[in-house]
Design a protein around this nucleic acid. Structure first.
Length: 261
DNA sequence: ATGGTGGCGGTGCCA
């Protein structure tokens, strides 16, 4: 089973790329972020025609996440628990049956958090604590899971092309990294790093200042696996080719493969 | 080079 995540930066602008990517890579489950569309605005017919079931948590203008699947998926959450007043569309979680038992797939768009001296950063940190609590609850049930998406955290200095330039950025704050470690240290596996423990492994290049042509990227899109899912991990990667296309998203897809036969 | 680009929505906000 292949599980992929992609921050598409407007699903309406990217629907052609999205469908071509689905056809080319054929993930069993794909989670999308930054739809920048309401549920009604999502190009549902095009994606369904390509062969995927579509579940969306949309929002006007900003945020928005989706879960696409080739097989039936039971949606178990359309928001991250822990704050009933949080109206931002940033989380979706589905449950699929596999030969190895149920698997939960969470698709998440973690708050950016800039600028750090504002409530945006405290919201980010609170959101990360809620995500940790959700992972802990799934672990307590011994539910196998993959939490995939745009985490908006560069876990270490190697994950930033210029650590000094990002010293004041929410993506690289010690508090952001500590919160990410608290999540991973529950016993999760960072699927991309499992296959490539060292060196740059960027998933995002800014549109500005020729970042892509200069390979000035960040690693902020991650797939975190529960122990049971990690037992079955057979591969993972970054689909860098998408960034070189015309009118690309600023993020590229990331994916992992689980052997669940 | 204290800028630069892109998306949304129709002006500044967000990334």
């Amino acid at each position: 089973m292949r599980i992929a995540s992609w921050n598409v930066n407007s699903v309406r602008k990217r629907v052609t790329h999205l469908c071509a990517w689905l056809e080319r890579t054929k993930p069993d489950i794909a989670v999308l972020q930054e739809l920048k569309a309401t549920d009604e605005q999502f190009p549902r017919l095009e994606v369904e025609a390509a062969g995927w079931r579509v579940e969306t948590v949309g929002q006007k203008g900003f945020n928005g996440v989706a879960l696409l699947a080739r097989q039936p998926v039971e949606i178990v959450l359309r928001a991250l628990p822990g704050d009933p007043d949080d109206a931002q569309a940033r989380y979706i979680e589905g449950r699929v049956e596999t030969p190895q038992g149920p698997l939960h797939v969470g698709g998440l768009y973690l708050p950016n958090g800039n600028p750090i001296a504002t409530e945006k950063f405290t919201y980010k940190l609170a959101w990360m604590e809620r995500l940790r609590a959700r992972a802990e609850a799934l672990l307590a049930d011994e539910t196998a899971f993959v939490l995939a998406g745009d985490y908006n955290v560069c876990p270490t200095a190697v994950d930033v092309y210029d650590p000094k330039a990002f010293a004041g950025d929410a993506l690289c704050q010690p508090q952001s990294r500590a919160a990410f470690r608290r999540l991973v240290n529950l016993g999760l596996t960072d699927a991309l790093r499992a296959g490539q423990p060292t060196g740059p492994l960027y998933t995002y290049w800014d549109y500005q200042a020729g970042a892509w042509s200069k390979d000035q990227g960040l690693r902020i899109d991650h797939l975190l696996l529960s122990p049971k899912a990690a037992d079955r991990l057979s591969g993972a990667g970054v689909d860098k080719s998408e960034r070189g296309k015309a009118e690309p998203s600023d993020h590229v897809p990331v994916w992992c493969e689980l052997n669940l036969d």
